[in-house]
Write a protein that binds this DNA or RNA. Structure first.
Lengths: 247, 247
DNA sequence: TGTTGATTTATACAGTGTAAATTTATACTG
DNA sequence: CAGTATAAATTTACACTGTATAAATCAACA
């Protein structure tokens, strides 16, 4: 035996590589990420990177995981800023506003995880699923709380197909089989905010300029009006904790 | 003088190049488009392509223009399937349904024009604007018709900032200065359908599987209920979705 | 036949990824 | 404790694919 793997000639080289990768992505976008460029930036040679990431895709996967972690931190922090009963709607709006805020602050991270997939790159779900679940947990958890209070209004919203592969939500906190409405509304909400945010980030949202915030607030209001009942608007559903009732 | 430029050694080579490019894009995605691959496909050499397209971006621009033309054809055809007064809502729904239909039928074309921009590629607006205007004209024109009938319900929808660069809508048919509400609603509608469709196309819409159609129809309904007054309802009150429960 | 457009050949440069050679630091041995 | 074997870390060299340009070649017509 000789030389344990702990001792590296450059300390923290994997982290340095990822830092350089983010710098490069911020400058020129994700799909122009180049291992040789990273190596140049770090003063090493390109093949050295292959000791820590077997190929370019592995590096991308690691960056995606970091982006999800950052996104999840913001989502959970926004939710936890309004703790306590009676603040469920505040939590929902906070996660919604934090979604756009984080996306504007980190557009490349956003596009990396929610943008169009890079052709040729197949994200390894077994690795990314936990951090995806955590990041979406703030929204879904809050919707679930509103559901437990009987304040969800699904209307004609079609429910998810129970028999399909529901990998995305099977690991969510508080997840159980009776929360199809929660999932359905979560998906619908996500679709709406994603449409706005992705267009704004990529500069395809015309006319609103700096005031994309106003349109976004309008859409958050529309979402709340459409899907969330106010607590005093009691239509006969008894708010219950513990037991989940299907509408 | 000798040899007029009409006589090419391969007839229609620009069209053949674009056909091969679409084949390649359909197979492997837009960002892996390779001039050498096209040349291989056509049995010519790569530099020959540079006679017709000065660089890779010029070829991409041409493909984008074709995609907009195809998209516009579908939008206008869908609108014109419900001609005549009194069918404005049918026209709106038809363009909405055609939007998703076309996107599912031509996902790569959709991503090329509405997806995340390819880093390093700057779309030449002076060339693409007319075909963009034409393709969006079906939606905006129909919204404008509903506006002329007094059936638009803007609510708290923020209006576009008039003083910003409104290149996108300045060329639209029936465009005049008084149609800010038309533009605002068109943008809001586009954001919503784009969110759903782009997620569905890229396989990021979980759980709904083949039934993304149901969620899409639900969203079209929500759009119509929120923004369009029915002709006999001249009170300005929109029926709230949250007040009626499903049986 | 000369002119000129169309195409190919040759070349420069950048990128991914692999195999072999090399450096470097540790651990074992005499 | 010195010397050496060893394995990790890194570099060099290479094979391949890509974009793009310049020069050479080919083809058709006046």
């Amino acid at each position: 035996m000789a030389r344990p793997p702990k001792e590296r000639q450059f300390a923290n080289l994997p982290e340095l590589i990822k830092d350089a990768a983010w710098r490069q992505i911020t400058q020129s976008g994700a799909s122009s990420l180049s291992l040789r460029g990273i190596a140049r930036d770090l003063g090493i040679t390109a093949p050295a990177i292959y000791n820590y990431f077997p190929d370019r895709d592995a590096l991308v996967t690691s960056l995606i995981a970091d982006a999800y972690a950052s996104f999840g931190d913001c989502q959970l922090a926004a939710r936890d800023a309004f703790a306590g009963q009676g603040k469920e709607l505040d939590r929902l709006r906070a996660t919604g506003l934090a979604y756009r805020r984080w996306a504007l602050d980190h557009p490349h991270r956003y596009l990396l995880i929610f943008g169009n997939p890079v052709p040729g790159y197949e994200p390894p779900m077994e690795e990314l699923l936990p951090v995806m679940m955590r990041s979406l947990g703030a929204l879904v958890g809050t919707i679930a709380e509103l559901h437990a209070l009987g304040r969800l209004e699904t209307g004609r919203l079609p429910l998810p197909l129970i028999d399909t592969d529901h990998r995305f939500f099977s690991l969510l906190e508080n997840a159980d089989e009776g929360m199809l409405a929660v999932y359905a509304i979560s998906i619908a909400v996500w679709c709406r905010v994603h449409g706005l945010v992705s267009l704004e980030i990529t500069g395809q949202l015309p006319l609103f300029g700096e005031d994309g915030a106003a349109l976004y607030r309008f859409e958050l209001d529309a979402i709340c009006r459409q899907f969330i009942r106010s607590p005093e608007d009691d239509t006969g559903v008894i708010p219950r904790t513990g037991t989940v009732r299907e509408p």
